[in-house]
Design a protein around this nucleic acid. Sequence first.
DNA 1: TTGAAAGCGCTACCAT
DNA 2: ATGGTAGCGCTTTCAA
Lengths: 325, 325
Amino acid sequence: MKRATINDVASAAGVSRQTVSRALNDKGEIDGATKQRVLDAARELGYRPSRFARGLVRPDTTTIGLVVPDLLNPFFTEVAAAALEAARSRGWHVVVHATADSAEEERGTLKVIGSQVDAVVGYFTLAETELDRHTRGMPVVLIGRDANAGRFSSIVIDGRQGVRAAVDHLVAAGHRHIGMLDHANRAGPSERHAWFCEAMAAHGLTTAVTGAQQSVDGGTEALTTLLDAHPGLTAVFTFNDIIAIGALRSARRRGLKVPDDLAVVGFDGLQLGTVVDPALTSVALDTKRIGALAVEQAARLLDGEQPLLGDELVVTAALTVRESA
Amino acid sequence: MKRATINDVASAAGVSRQTVSRALNDKGEIDGATKQRVLDAARELGYRPSRFARGLVRPDTTTIGLVVPDLLNPFFTEVAAAALEAARSRGWHVVVHATADSAEEERGTLKVIGSQVDAVVGYFTLAETELDRHTRGMPVVLIGRDANAGRFSSIVIDGRQGVRAAVDHLVAAGHRHIGMLDHANRAGPSERHAWFCEAMAAHGLTTAVTGAQQSVDGGTEALTTLLDAHPGLTAVFTFNDIIAIGALRSARRRGLKVPDDLAVVGFDGLQLGTVVDPALTSVALDTKRIGALAVEQAARLLDGEQPLLGDELVVTAALTVRESA
DNA sequence: TTGAAAGCGCTACCAT
DNA sequence: ATGGTAGCGCTTTCAA
């Protein structure tokens, strides 16, 4: 069944389109009875004005697509909340999509989103060529990808300093045997792993690594695996706070006191880290800044202004010392 | 500066509109050189096709507005994730707005969202008359409001059974002095408070209540206040899990063992409750169902199908016993 | 108070 | 391979 249009309502009510428009938009200059008749006809037909036809005539509204892997992961939620706020302050709309870290979902999202938004902001794992194909000409701001060379802008996450500070902190506390719980769901070790190794190497230390699923349970399991293989470890650095919280739980189950028997340092600096006991020490990212920066860059791209470049797009991490290390 | 249209590109490239359209949409039947010329002109002018004009011509896309108070509260995030998923499976788009629990923001959201979405789903505190005024004729599905009488549908949260089960559970464990940490940020006690009192009364018990801000810190403070005033309490029921987690922390700081010295029961059943120690016992709401149901009802309203009615819109709560009680 | 006509930007269809 | 024409559904002049 086709949707009723303004013309259907007009003929049903025995008036012209513009009269319908007047009735629906509470314009003056219309007879009370006529108005009522039109309203009734509209309800009768289940008429709803077309957003598109309206948008075509009315002043522009900007809508951006925000793409995150998973809204249940607090990190992405914090970024999303920040992006939403930044968009709101500009009077923009935000369409949110979750891709579950799947390339297939990313493609689907882009296809669906393509003609519905003015710009896309968010997390993608797709290759640039494919991204390009699906977003022809639309401004795209990536987060956490080193892609400022090509067609895309990217908010770059630089955790090198922060991770270095974390390792320094651990070493200063006397730790020499520090392991890492990296992520496990993609090909190869993470950038965070590289930063960690670099920092360790600066102290002349080596390390042991285990991959963990990106969930609390994943962290719990992974720490068990890691400690079974390397019982001498006195500290662990994790890919993110979620995994760290799992590690905390695992340590507790083994009867290890944190931070005395085992120090734990996460990455992300989630607010969530303050509700666990002991509160999580973490290499903190400014999630607000990430979201706001991404939207800001999208705005510049949309307005044809000078886009942010190089350092302006970099978000650095800083060590937040709480209780777990 | 006005946005470039397809006509601008056409004249710049010295071709007709349709040729521009072909070039941009990768249609065949176009000379390679021409296509390149058009693409160059488009980039030159910063041309981006109008979503609205496209939408007008292409098959309809449904977009709904999802309104939540706060994306940083995991409860709403869980509901939002479920709604997103339900929408995705229908090929719908979801525009997300956060209102920060402010009536002013709600109004702003409705105004902005009004002509941009096909239906609105979510949390509102605005009076029905005002909601009506801002949403003229658009389907609206409220969550957690008893509004199925008027123009609006609402997903009703019925925690009576669940709260009753929680109190039964506590009483069976020997508790007689059970307090409550209610919310504090609105006028009057909550419905959850009423359910709680009712369940207590069924056991011939009375209770003591303190209001808490809806945050972890709020819960921490409130439990301190409550216990200072009523040192004899051996258990507390809280408005939600966030507050309960704050209470857990407060108990720990007082040196109280949970659940031995103080049992704690939350409300919401968040996944977050499993990462704290002890894991939180909670009256659990099926957040997935809430989100899915709200979208389902929106779908029926949009399609003019028979909407869900009465019991079909009710989501009940069930006690999830973990470690804290 | 109401209606007729124009046009928003785009794509589909039919010519050429 | 390219262009002309029509029309998507709506609002906004301008007349009546």
